[in-house]
Simulated scan of single mutants.
Amino acid sequence: MAKNLRKDEAVLCAMQLIQKNGGEMHIRDIKAEMENSFPKNDYERGRLKSDGSLRWYNQLLFHSIRAYKSGFIQKNKGVWHLTPEGEQVMKLSLKEFSDALHKGYNKWLAKKKKAESTPQSIEEEDAVVETEIDYEQASNQAEEGFRSYIAALNPYEFQDLVAALFRGMGYYTPFVAPKGKDGGIDIIAYRDALGLEFPRVKVQVKHYPNNPVSADVVRQLRGTLSHEGESGVVVTSGSFTNDAKSEARSSHRAITLIDFSLFVSLWIEHYSKLSDEDKKRLPIAPIYFVKPTVG
Protein backbone atom coordinates (compact mmCIF):
# COMPACT_ATOMS: atom_id res chain seq x y z
CA MET A 1 0.00 0.00 0.00
CA ALA A 2 2.83 2.39 0.92
CA LYS A 3 4.54 1.66 -2.41
CA ASN A 4 1.38 2.45 -4.39
CA LEU A 5 0.88 5.63 -2.37
CA ARG A 6 4.42 6.70 -3.20
CA LYS A 7 3.89 6.11 -6.93
CA ASP A 8 0.57 7.93 -6.87
CA GLU A 9 2.35 10.82 -5.12
CA ALA A 10 4.52 11.16 -8.22
CA VAL A 11 1.41 11.38 -10.40
CA LEU A 12 -0.03 14.04 -8.08
CA CYS A 13 3.24 15.99 -8.27
CA ALA A 14 3.06 15.91 -12.08
CA MET A 15 -0.54 17.13 -12.03
CA GLN A 16 0.40 19.97 -9.67
CA LEU A 17 3.13 21.06 -12.07
CA ILE A 18 0.65 20.99 -14.95
CA GLN A 19 -1.74 23.16 -12.95
CA LYS A 20 1.01 25.70 -12.16
CA ASN A 21 1.86 25.79 -15.88
CA GLY A 22 -1.66 26.87 -16.86
CA GLY A 23 -3.28 23.46 -17.33
CA GLU A 24 -0.98 21.84 -19.88
CA MET A 25 2.65 20.76 -19.95
CA HIS A 26 4.91 18.64 -22.11
CA ILE A 27 6.10 15.41 -20.49
CA ARG A 28 9.68 16.50 -21.26
CA ASP A 29 9.19 19.59 -19.06
CA ILE A 30 7.38 17.60 -16.38
CA LYS A 31 10.34 15.22 -16.22
CA ALA A 32 12.84 18.10 -16.03
CA GLU A 33 10.90 19.79 -13.21
CA MET A 34 10.46 16.59 -11.24
CA GLU A 35 14.16 15.81 -11.52
CA ASN A 36 14.67 18.62 -9.01
CA SER A 37 11.37 19.10 -7.21
CA PHE A 38 10.33 15.50 -6.48
CA PRO A 39 12.54 13.84 -3.82
CA LYS A 40 13.76 10.37 -4.81
CA ASN A 41 15.55 7.60 -2.94
CA ASP A 42 18.48 5.63 -4.38
CA TYR A 43 16.21 2.88 -5.70
CA GLU A 44 13.98 5.34 -7.54
CA ARG A 45 17.00 7.13 -9.00
CA GLY A 46 18.28 3.85 -10.43
CA ARG A 47 17.83 2.65 -13.99
CA LEU A 48 15.90 -0.33 -15.32
CA LYS A 49 18.00 -3.20 -16.65
CA SER A 50 15.57 -3.77 -19.53
CA ASP A 51 15.99 -0.43 -21.32
CA GLY A 52 18.13 1.79 -19.10
CA SER A 53 15.33 4.24 -18.38
CA LEU A 54 15.08 5.97 -15.02
CA ARG A 55 13.01 3.88 -12.62
CA TRP A 56 11.07 6.80 -11.12
CA TYR A 57 10.21 8.14 -14.59
CA ASN A 58 9.09 4.72 -15.82
CA GLN A 59 6.87 4.40 -12.75
CA LEU A 60 5.41 7.85 -13.41
CA LEU A 61 4.47 6.86 -16.97
CA PHE A 62 3.03 3.55 -15.76
CA HIS A 63 0.86 5.06 -13.02
CA SER A 64 -0.13 8.11 -15.07
CA ILE A 65 -2.18 5.70 -17.16
CA ARG A 66 -4.51 5.35 -14.17
CA ALA A 67 -4.97 9.12 -14.11
CA TYR A 68 -5.56 9.11 -17.86
CA LYS A 69 -8.12 6.29 -17.77
CA SER A 70 -9.83 7.95 -14.79
CA GLY A 71 -10.29 11.13 -16.82
CA PHE A 72 -8.02 13.28 -14.61
CA ILE A 73 -5.55 14.06 -17.39
CA GLN A 74 -5.52 13.93 -21.17
CA LYS A 75 -2.45 13.20 -23.30
CA ASN A 76 -1.86 14.51 -26.79
CA LYS A 77 1.48 14.21 -28.61
CA GLY A 78 3.55 14.40 -25.46
CA VAL A 79 1.52 17.18 -23.87
CA TRP A 80 -0.42 16.36 -20.70
CA HIS A 81 -3.58 18.36 -20.05
CA LEU A 82 -5.31 18.68 -16.68
CA THR A 83 -9.08 18.11 -16.83
CA PRO A 84 -11.69 19.77 -14.56
CA GLU A 85 -12.09 16.36 -12.85
CA GLY A 86 -8.35 16.31 -12.28
CA GLU A 87 -8.42 19.76 -10.70
CA GLN A 88 -11.11 18.62 -8.28
CA VAL A 89 -9.37 15.41 -7.22
CA MET A 90 -6.15 17.32 -6.52
CA LYS A 91 -7.91 19.03 -3.61
CA LEU A 92 -8.03 15.69 -1.74
CA SER A 93 -5.42 14.32 0.63
CA LEU A 94 -2.79 12.01 -0.87
CA LYS A 95 -4.60 8.94 0.50
CA GLU A 96 -7.94 10.12 -0.91
CA PHE A 97 -6.29 11.02 -4.20
CA SER A 98 -4.78 7.55 -4.43
CA ASP A 99 -8.16 5.95 -3.67
CA ALA A 100 -9.85 8.09 -6.35
CA LEU A 101 -7.12 7.15 -8.83
CA HIS A 102 -7.59 3.42 -8.29
CA LYS A 103 -11.38 3.68 -8.14
CA GLY A 104 -11.48 5.57 -11.44
CA TYR A 105 -9.14 3.11 -13.12
CA ASN A 106 -11.10 0.09 -11.85
CA LYS A 107 -14.33 1.66 -13.08
CA TRP A 108 -12.81 2.10 -16.55
CA LEU A 109 -11.47 -1.45 -16.42
CA ALA A 110 -14.86 -2.91 -15.46
CA LYS A 111 -16.54 -1.00 -18.29
CA LYS A 112 -13.89 -2.25 -20.72
CA LYS A 113 -14.30 -5.87 -19.60
CA LYS A 114 -18.06 -5.64 -19.94
CA ALA A 115 -17.67 -4.53 -23.54
CA GLU A 116 -15.30 -7.41 -24.36
CA SER A 117 -16.62 -10.79 -25.36
CA THR A 118 -13.56 -12.46 -23.80
CA PRO A 119 -12.23 -10.58 -20.74
CA GLN A 120 -8.47 -10.16 -20.55
CA SER A 121 -6.39 -11.88 -17.91
CA ILE A 122 -4.30 -9.83 -15.46
CA GLU A 123 -1.21 -10.72 -17.50
CA GLU A 124 -2.89 -9.48 -20.69
CA GLU A 125 -3.97 -6.26 -18.97
CA ASP A 126 -0.39 -5.66 -17.79
CA ALA A 127 0.84 -6.28 -21.34
CA VAL A 128 -1.58 -3.63 -22.64
CA VAL A 129 -0.29 -1.13 -20.08
CA GLU A 130 3.30 -1.92 -21.03
CA THR A 131 2.39 -1.38 -24.69
CA GLU A 132 0.92 2.01 -23.84
CA ILE A 133 4.11 2.99 -22.03
CA ASP A 134 6.24 1.78 -24.93
CA TYR A 135 4.06 3.75 -27.35
CA GLU A 136 4.28 6.92 -25.28
CA GLN A 137 8.05 6.60 -24.89
CA ALA A 138 8.52 5.90 -28.61
CA SER A 139 6.37 8.92 -29.50
CA ASN A 140 8.33 11.11 -27.10
CA GLN A 141 11.63 9.84 -28.49
CA ALA A 142 10.53 10.60 -32.05
CA GLU A 143 9.46 14.09 -31.03
CA GLU A 144 12.78 14.72 -29.31
CA GLY A 145 14.50 13.80 -32.57
CA PHE A 146 12.48 16.47 -34.37
CA ARG A 147 13.12 18.96 -31.58
CA SER A 148 16.91 18.46 -31.61
CA TYR A 149 17.08 18.72 -35.40
CA ILE A 150 15.01 21.90 -35.58
CA ALA A 151 16.72 23.53 -32.59
CA ALA A 152 20.07 23.13 -34.37
CA LEU A 153 18.87 25.21 -37.33
CA ASN A 154 19.66 28.89 -37.49
CA PRO A 155 16.71 31.36 -37.71
CA TYR A 156 16.90 31.66 -41.51
CA GLU A 157 17.05 27.89 -41.99
CA PHE A 158 13.95 27.53 -39.82
CA GLN A 159 12.26 30.30 -41.81
CA ASP A 160 13.00 28.40 -45.03
CA LEU A 161 11.62 25.26 -43.41
CA VAL A 162 8.36 27.06 -42.61
CA ALA A 163 8.13 28.37 -46.18
CA ALA A 164 8.63 24.80 -47.44
CA LEU A 165 5.75 23.62 -45.25
CA PHE A 166 3.44 26.25 -46.73
CA ARG A 167 4.38 25.13 -50.23
CA GLY A 168 3.64 21.55 -49.25
CA MET A 169 0.23 22.72 -48.04
CA GLY A 170 -0.52 24.12 -51.49
CA TYR A 171 0.54 27.75 -51.05
CA TYR A 172 2.80 29.86 -53.22
CA THR A 173 5.50 31.74 -51.31
CA PRO A 174 6.58 34.66 -53.53
CA PHE A 175 8.21 36.43 -50.59
CA VAL A 176 10.57 34.90 -48.03
CA ALA A 177 12.44 37.58 -46.11
CA PRO A 178 16.15 37.85 -46.85
CA LYS A 179 18.65 38.38 -44.05
CA GLY A 180 18.22 41.72 -42.35
CA LYS A 181 15.15 43.69 -41.27
CA ASP A 182 11.90 42.17 -42.51
CA GLY A 183 9.35 44.75 -41.37
CA GLY A 184 7.64 42.17 -39.17
CA ILE A 185 6.76 39.82 -42.03
CA ASP A 186 8.93 36.80 -42.81
CA ILE A 187 6.80 35.01 -45.40
CA ILE A 188 3.89 35.98 -47.63
CA ALA A 189 1.83 33.07 -48.93
CA TYR A 190 -0.90 32.96 -51.59
CA ARG A 191 -3.31 30.26 -52.68
CA ASP A 192 -2.72 31.07 -56.36
CA ALA A 193 0.37 32.13 -58.27
CA LEU A 194 -0.85 35.72 -58.79
CA GLY A 195 -2.11 36.31 -55.26
CA LEU A 196 -5.65 37.04 -56.41
CA GLU A 197 -7.43 34.49 -54.21
CA PHE A 198 -8.14 34.84 -50.50
CA PRO A 199 -6.75 34.35 -48.00
CA ARG A 200 -3.46 36.15 -48.41
CA VAL A 201 -1.32 34.99 -45.51
CA LYS A 202 1.34 36.98 -43.70
CA VAL A 203 3.64 34.80 -41.64
CA GLN A 204 5.85 35.76 -38.72
CA VAL A 205 8.47 33.12 -37.86
CA LYS A 206 10.08 32.92 -34.41
CA HIS A 207 12.88 30.43 -33.88
CA TYR A 208 12.54 30.25 -30.09
CA PRO A 209 12.98 26.57 -29.17
CA ASN A 210 13.47 27.36 -25.48
CA ASN A 211 11.33 30.45 -24.89
CA PRO A 212 7.59 30.93 -25.43
CA VAL A 213 6.41 33.56 -27.89
CA SER A 214 4.71 36.49 -26.16
CA ALA A 215 1.47 38.31 -26.92
CA ASP A 216 3.47 41.29 -28.26
CA VAL A 217 4.45 39.24 -31.33
CA VAL A 218 0.78 38.49 -32.04
CA ARG A 219 -0.12 42.17 -31.66
CA GLN A 220 2.69 43.21 -34.01
CA LEU A 221 1.49 40.79 -36.67
CA ARG A 222 -2.11 41.92 -36.27
CA GLY A 223 -0.95 45.49 -36.92
CA THR A 224 0.29 44.48 -40.39
CA LEU A 225 -3.06 42.97 -41.44
CA SER A 226 -4.44 46.17 -42.95
CA HIS A 227 -6.32 44.85 -45.99
CA GLU A 228 -9.43 42.72 -46.40
CA GLY A 229 -8.72 39.05 -47.02
CA GLU A 230 -5.43 39.06 -45.11
CA SER A 231 -4.79 36.47 -42.42
CA GLY A 232 -1.86 36.04 -40.08
CA VAL A 233 0.15 33.05 -38.90
CA VAL A 234 2.81 32.95 -36.21
CA VAL A 235 5.07 29.91 -36.35
CA THR A 236 7.50 29.06 -33.58
CA SER A 237 9.94 26.25 -32.93
CA GLY A 238 8.82 26.36 -29.30
CA SER A 239 5.56 27.36 -27.65
CA PHE A 240 3.27 30.31 -26.95
CA THR A 241 2.38 32.02 -23.70
CA ASN A 242 -1.23 31.81 -22.57
CA ASP A 243 -1.52 35.56 -23.21
CA ALA A 244 -0.38 35.05 -26.81
CA LYS A 245 -3.02 32.37 -27.32
CA SER A 246 -5.69 34.64 -25.83
CA GLU A 247 -4.56 37.54 -28.02
CA ALA A 248 -4.86 35.40 -31.17
CA ARG A 249 -8.33 34.15 -30.20
CA SER A 250 -9.65 37.66 -29.55
CA SER A 251 -8.11 39.25 -32.66
CA HIS A 252 -10.57 40.83 -35.12
CA ARG A 253 -8.30 39.53 -37.87
CA ALA A 254 -7.80 35.77 -38.25
CA ILE A 255 -4.48 34.79 -36.66
CA THR A 256 -3.36 31.18 -36.36
CA LEU A 257 -0.61 30.03 -34.00
CA ILE A 258 1.59 27.10 -34.99
CA ASP A 259 3.79 25.79 -32.18
CA PHE A 260 6.46 23.12 -32.43
CA SER A 261 4.09 20.17 -32.00
CA LEU A 262 1.61 21.42 -34.60
CA PHE A 263 4.44 22.24 -37.00
CA VAL A 264 5.77 18.67 -36.77
CA SER A 265 2.27 17.24 -37.26
CA LEU A 266 1.74 19.38 -40.36
CA TRP A 267 5.18 18.48 -41.73
CA ILE A 268 4.41 14.78 -41.38
CA GLU A 269 0.92 15.21 -42.87
CA HIS A 270 2.09 17.12 -45.95
CA TYR A 271 5.54 15.58 -46.38
CA SER A 272 4.52 13.54 -49.43
CA LYS A 273 3.45 16.75 -51.20
CA LEU A 274 6.78 18.52 -50.71
CA SER A 275 9.25 18.89 -53.54
CA ASP A 276 12.37 16.72 -53.32
CA GLU A 277 14.39 19.85 -52.58
CA ASP A 278 12.12 20.87 -49.70
CA LYS A 279 12.08 17.35 -48.26
CA LYS A 280 15.84 17.63 -47.78
CA ARG A 281 15.30 20.46 -45.30
CA LEU A 282 13.84 18.00 -42.78
CA PRO A 283 13.93 14.43 -44.12
CA ILE A 284 11.74 11.90 -42.32
CA ALA A 285 10.85 8.23 -42.67
CA PRO A 286 7.79 6.43 -41.24
CA ILE A 287 8.21 3.64 -38.71
CA TYR A 288 5.11 1.62 -37.88
CA PHE A 289 4.29 -0.13 -34.60
CA VAL A 290 1.18 -1.20 -32.74
CA LYS A 291 -0.74 1.73 -31.28
CA PRO A 292 -2.74 1.04 -28.09
CA THR A 293 -6.49 1.39 -28.40
CA VAL A 294 -8.12 4.23 -26.49
CA GLY A 295 -11.13 3.39 -24.41
Rank of each mutant, 00 (worst) to 15 (best):
M90H: 07
G195C: 09
A115E: 06
Y208Q: 08
E9Y: 02
D186Q: 13
Q74S: 15
R281K: 15
T118P: 05
M1Y: 01
S139Y: 08
R66S: 05
K291A: 14
Q19K: 15
S214K: 06
P84C: 02
E96V: 02
M25L: 13
E157K: 14
L153N: 10
Q19L: 11
W56F: 07
S148H: 04
F175M: 13
K202Y: 11
E269P: 00
F158C: 03
F146G: 02
F72C: 06
R147M: 07
P212Q: 00
H63N: 12
I122A: 12
G295E: 07
R47G: 01
Q16R: 15
S246W: 00
Y156T: 11
R147H: 10
L101C: 03
V264P: 15
N58V: 06
S231W: 09
P178A: 15
R191F: 00
M169S: 04
P209L: 00
A110K: 14
N41P: 04
A151V: 00
Q159C: 06
L82N: 11
L165T: 05
K291F: 12
E33R: 09
Y208V: 02
E230D: 13
L274S: 11
H207D: 04
S265Q: 14
F38A: 05
L165N: 03
R147S: 14
F260T: 10
F175N: 12
G232F: 01
L5A: 07
I287P: 02
K113A: 07
D276I: 09
D8H: 14
K107L: 14
V235R: 01
D276F: 05
E9Q: 09
M25W: 02
I268C: 12
H207R: 08
G180K: 05
